[in-house]
């Protein structure tokens, strides 16, 4: 299939604030890599959704048991901004 990359859309999905020049440069690089990657299309048949764990693992569960949580001060000490035990961010824009 032909490669056409809406690089601005991809960058938006990936939450990367890139300049127009950066976008252009990444698009060029991705074109080259994806052109090489089209080799995977040489295999026939339906695409696979997943491939199995090499050891065939299934049902790797834990029991419904509590384990100690982290110390909140230690966690919050790594945060860029906190208030009264909360992490703080500026408001979201898309909801109203």
């Amino acid at each position: 299939m032909p490669i056409d990359i809406d690089i601005a859309h991809v960058a938006r999905l990936a939450r990367l604030d890139l300049t127009a020049e950066e976008l252009e440069s990444y698009k060029t690089q991705l074109d080259v890599i994806l052109d090489h990657a089209t080799q995977v299309q040489s295999l026939e048949g339906d695409p696979r959704e997943e491939s199995a764990h090499p050891l065939g693992l299934v049902n790797a569960f834990r029991q419904d048991e509590r384990r100690p949580s982290l110390d909140r001060d230690e966690v919050l000490s790594q945060a860029p901004e906190t208030k009264d035990g909360y992490f703080v961010v500026p408001p979201a824009m898309e909801t109203q």
Binding site: M1, E50, S51
Partner: peptide, 12 residues
């Protein structure tokens, strides 16, 4: 399908 799905098939 064309990329990730095909790649998984190659992996198998």
């Amino acid at each position: 399908d064309a990329f990730y799905g095909q790649a998984q098939k190659v992996r198998s």
